[in-house]
Computed example of a mutant assay.
Amino acid sequence: MAVYTEVAFGEAAALLHRLSLGDLTELRGIQGGIENTNYFATTVRDGVAHEHVLTVFERLSFEQLPYYLHLMKYLAGQGIPVPEPAADERGEILHSVQGKPAAVVNKLRGHSELAPTEAHCRAVGDMLARMHLAGRGFEMSQPNLRGLPWWNETVPVVLPHLGESQAALIRTELAYQNHVAAGSAYTALPRGPVHADLFRDNVMFDDGELTGFFDFYFAGNDSFLFDLAVCLNDWCILHAADERDGQHDAGRARAMIAAYQAVRPLSMAERQLLPAMLRAGALRFWLSRLWDWHLPRDASMLKPHDPTHFERVLRERVRHAQALSASLLEEACVAA
């Protein structure tokens, strides 16, 4: 992702050697994203090359990070394809680089599918449900740090940068989400560890096979439905350079929901609140992109995402989510 901390080759080499990952031969910064410093690191051990990802955390603290790293290690142990943090001789998986928290994980094979088909969406829906079921046994707990309390804190910060119609939309939607969160149906939603950022660029495929979910550093305990809605809002939306941008793709959405339900059927409360969570997912990413766009941090290779896309997604969800979700659930139940 963006490079905020320049890591010297020698420092990285020493860390990888301490983790028994071999001799470092190549270190290159990763472009894209905006949260942490990431490097691809190639090592050689016993004559064989291995690929790793070194992450230096810029916002998350030493106190917050054990949740994310141990969740990844737990899920990997449950057979969910996620990067597994490397431990030192004492079993520690949280390390330090230039006084900042850091981790090293194995690099997943394959590439991201930025133009997904229904088959890709089925694979993601299936694995997301399996991850949710597996995660129920994870004993650590930490709230989704980009959840409703963060929305309430951050909306006033971005409001001065918005036009009149944008400000009206974000105020109205925030009030709606607070209303939803106060209801009994919301309280009844099944919960557990969620990825909360499972966009197309956080999933790997190799020759059509889903090889893993990665970048768990927005994970937290939240509703499984919110996690599914975040996926639907990226995998099953048109990403276009015209007025179609942000519109719903029904075929891909039906495929994802049907695959998810075949593993973990949605509860009555989840069916009731799917429209609200589609809106919540759109609000969360519109808000975070507004924040990053208007209040950026200095970083080498930094490219903040244009927030306009998720403004369009939210407007579409507000207009159409109720009808869309009813149709999707009915058809997905038949398909499942």
Rank of each mutant, 00 (worst) to 15 (best):
R122Q: 14
G137H: 07
G22L: 12
A259S: 13
Q247D: 14
L238D: 12
H239N: 15
R317W: 04
G147E: 14
T5K: 14
Q166N: 11
M131P: 11
V158E: 13
F214T: 11
L128W: 05
W150I: 14
S112I: 01
L21I: 15
E92D: 09
W151R: 12
H52Y: 14
R254I: 10
R289W: 10
S141K: 11
P304I: 14
F9G: 07
S112E: 07
Q78S: 04
A129G: 04
G32C: 02
P83N: 04
L69R: 01
V105D: 03
T211M: 08
R252K: 13
H70A: 00
V48E: 12
T172F: 06
P85F: 08
A103C: 15
R146Y: 04
L278T: 02
R271L: 00
A167P: 08
A240N: 02
Q64N: 07
H305K: 14
Q272S: 05
L328M: 11
V203Y: 03
D245E: 09
R122F: 04
R319E: 10
D242R: 09
D245K: 06
L232R: 01
H120W: 08
F214L: 15
L21W: 12
G251F: 11
A299L: 14
E35S: 15
E92G: 01
A123E: 04
L225T: 01
P296Q: 14
R264W: 03
Q177C: 03
M140K: 00
P160I: 09
G79L: 10
H111A: 03
E270M: 07
D23T: 13
E118R: 03
G22Q: 11
E164H: 15
G163P: 06
A13S: 15
L145G: 02
A250W: 13
A258V: 09
A326K: 09
C333D: 02
G251E: 10
T55P: 04
F216N: 09
Y260Q: 07
L295E: 13
I34C: 05
T37A: 09
F62D: 06
G91N: 03
L287I: 06
R59F: 04
F214P: 02
I34K: 06
Q98C: 06
R254G: 03
F138I: 05
G183C: 11
E118N: 06
I237K: 05
R90Q: 07
T308W: 08
M127Y: 02
A282H: 05
S61Q: 01
A276G: 01
E84N: 01
K303V: 13
F40R: 10
T42V: 09
V105Q: 02
L54A: 10
H120D: 15
E89P: 02
R244V: 05
V53Q: 03
H320G: 04
F205N: 13
H132I: 10
N152M: 05
F214S: 03
L114V: 10
K107R: 12
G22Y: 10
L169A: 11
A299K: 14
L273S: 00
F213I: 11
R279A: 02
T55W: 00
G192Y: 12
I237R: 13
E209M: 07
A269D: 01
A250Y: 12
R254W: 04
E63S: 04
L290I: 05
R315D: 03
R171I: 10
L295M: 15
V56E: 09
T211V: 02
Y260P: 03
Q166V: 07
